[in-house]
């Protein structure tokens, strides 16, 4: 294993876009280390929840023929054909991101809300994130399948909680496409997330203790559409200007949970990407 700083990764990846191939290529057995620096945030749809700051977003990947580590996901690829890729995966469940104290002094510590304070209502049937018991980080494991076609990359995955945190499962189906025009690269991504009732109840429901002795509030399962677009302007082999926009729908959860002040979350980032 070698810590290689590959200076042609970006160009190799982008060469693929121009020919209509949707996926980036990364060299085997070399670390891909990049960083996105700029200004951005992911809005927090929960009462009292901090928006997720996006000033420095690392981009880390390491691939072998079979194993890979890629931004929060560890995978083992069973089938790696031109059109079909099937992997066993494990990754951190992202739902806890809305329960983290993202104040600047806490960002790197990733402190979570941990309060035994009794429920404090902020208006009728509305509660704040910082009045809740801790929502723990969960580790999920499952399978992910990619289908690479001339009209884009289709992906489905299903994962279950293996850390005994929320004891449920989730799934995702998405379409991603990459297009390069001269120095510009556009990468739209749309999809739907499925959250089991166990996942929604754990993160967005309220326990009897949290409702001050009243009944539990259960959210039930949900389907959340999302859409993202990534726009890059290639400056040179190692640097690009980058803008990212994302939208995740939380309408089903927002209707069932008093935690929500918004029925969606928006992500915006403007900055530069540097490849080491």
């Amino acid at each position: 294993m070698r810590l290689g700083l590959h200076n042609s990764v970006l160009s190799a990846a982008l060469a693929a876009f121009g020919s209509g191939v949707q996926a980036n290529e990364v060299p085997l057995k070399q670390w891909h280390l990049g960083v996105n620096i700029g200004y951005g945030m992911m809005t927090n749809p929960l009462y009292g929840g901090d928006d997720v700051p996006l000033y420095l977003v690392p981009d880390i990947a390491y691939y072998t023929d079979t194993w890979y580590l890629d931004n929060n996901q560890l995978g083992y690829t069973f089938i790696n054909q031109d059109a079909h890729v099937l992997s066993a995966i494990t990754e951190v469940n992202p739902e806890t991101r809305f329960f983290v104290d993202w104040h600047p002094s806490s960002v790197f510590a990733l402190q979570q809300i941990d309060s035994n304070t009794p429920l404090a209502a902020e208006g009728p049937a509305r509660v704040r994130v910082d009045d809740l018991d801790k929502r723990h980080w969960a580790l999920d494991a499952g399978f992910e399948y990619h289908y690479f076609s001339p009209i884009g990359q289709f992906q489905v995955k299903a994962l279950a909680d293996v850390s005994d945190v929320y004891r449920g499962w989730r799934a995702q189906a998405s379409w991603r496409w990459g297009y390069r025009f001269e120095q510009w690269v556009l990468e739209p991504n749309i999809g739907v997330n499925y959250s089991s009732s166990e996942q929604n109840d754990y993160f967005y429901g309220l326990s009897r203790e949290e409702t001050g002795g009243y009944a539990d509030i259960l959210v039930g399962s949900s389907v959340q559409p999302y859409a993202k677009i990534d726009v890059s302007y290639i400056v040179d082999e190692r640097n690009a200007l980058r803008m990212h926009l994302g939208y995740i729908d939380y309408d089903t959860q927002a209707k069932a949970s008093p935690l929500f002040k918004e029925s969606s979350s928006l992500t915006l980032f403007i900055g530069v990407k540097h490849l080491f």
């Binding site: 996926a23 290529e25 085997l28 023929d65 929060n72 995978g75 992202p94």
Partner: peptide, 13 residues
């Protein structure tokens, strides 16, 4: 010597 990357940096957000 290389393979397709399966994730985006924005997968978590």
């Amino acid at each position: 010597s290389s393979r397709r990357r399966l994730r985006s940096v924005w997968s978590f957000f």
